[in-house]
């Protein structure tokens, strides 16, 4: 009987115990490594974002909020006045819009796919899930390059369209916002399908019968029964797509040809060509803040009760 054990686990979840010496020793290496080599860098980003850029890269140890102001304003060289300037704001807006479009597209593609998989037989489901998972493990750079390959002016899509005489001039798809969006969807689609599938898999499909019995049609069952129950999966999936899209670097870099910047590129540029570390750090801090807000909002979502057995 599990009576005694149950009591114990119930108790344990309240966790008033402090960590044991052995546990601490076992956790120490991983915690120390991450604290030093990840929390450390994040702290440096925070500090650097309030410093003054050095002449040849690096930083001057002089406090300044200039890096943050730089997002919205340009300082007139002569009068030292702040003049509103929207170039960087546009980069942020483009990132937000592209990330949103990618997330919504992934939802629209991902939910039906996840639903389709969840209604397969148990044996087949695993195969479908594997099919969806495998692309994620293929190098993101390679996948993006292959997307560029097919979208290019000389790529197979244009070649086929021209070859069949539908168009005479290639459609410029590469190096556009469209290409970036395609790249983002392509990169993070599995992130949407998998969590949505996970919650659909636990969905009790007898609820559909029950709703059907109570005179609900197919689409109102979808809207009023299924979607509310799998909402946590939809939120998790959206978050898993939105966050990496927002900080994406590879897709805009390869598919945008470096012309259509997103936040990720803007940050990277400051540490490479432009050598303005404080500005790059400030951009990173703003991105991190947006991500934290998104995570907090999602975490605040009320946890659904246990599924109806």
């Amino acid at each position: 009987m599990a009576g005694g054990i149950n009591l114990q686990t119930n108790w344990s979840t309240k966790a008033s115990n402090s960590i044991s010496g052995k546990q601490f020793l076992q956790l120490f290496p991983a915690m120390a490594a991450i604290s030093f080599f990840l929390i450390g860098p994040l702290t440096f980003i925070l500090i650097y974002s309030f410093l003054t850029p050095g002449t040849y890269g690096g930083v001057e140890w002089q406090f300044s909020t200039e890096s943050y102001l730089q997002f919205l304003f340009e300082r007139d060289l002569i009068t030292d006045e702040l003049i509103f300037e929207n170039a960087y704001l546009l980069v942020f807006l483009r990132s937000l819009v592209l990330a949103l479009i990618a997330t919504i597209s992934c939802l629209l593609i991902g939910f039906p796919t996840a639903f389709f998989i969840a209604t397969r037989s148990e044996h087949n489901r695993n195969m479908w899930v594997l099919l969806i998972t495998v692309p994620y493990w293929v190098n993101l750079l390679i996948r993006t390059v292959s997307m560029l390959f097919i979208l290019r002016d000389e790529g197979p899509i244009n070649a086929a369209l021209i070859g069949t005489g539908i168009i005479s001039e290639p459609i410029h798809m590469a190096y556009t916002n469209f290409a970036i969006g395609m790249g983002l969807i392509y990169s993070y689609l599995p992130f949407m399908v998998l969590p949505v599938y996970a919650s659909l898999e636990r969905f009790d499909f007898r609820l559909m019968k029950a709703a059907y019995d109570l005179y609900a049609g197919r689409w109102s069952i979808l809207l009023r029964v299924i979607l509310p129950v799998v909402k946590p999966g939809l939120i998790a999936g959206s978050l898993l797509v939105f966050i990496p899209c927002l900080g994406a670097f590879i897709a805009p870099d390869i598919l945008g040809g470096g012309k259509k910047l997103m936040i990720g590129n803007l940050i990277a540029m400051q540490f490479q060509a432009s050598r303005n570390w404080p500005f790059g750090s400030a951009a990173a801090m703003i991105l991190l803040t947006i991500v934290l807000i998104a995570l907090t909002v999602a975490a605040r979502q009320p946890r659904p009760g246990k599924e109806v057995a």
Binding site: M1, A2, G3, G4, N6, L7
Partner: peptide, 17 residues
């Protein structure tokens, strides 16, 4: 019945708790 403490007693004798 379940939860009465019989398994706990057994675990105490075995030394798991």
């Amino acid at each position: 019945p379940s939860g009465c403490g019989k398994t706990t007693l057994l675990h105490l004798i075995a030394g798991f708790e």
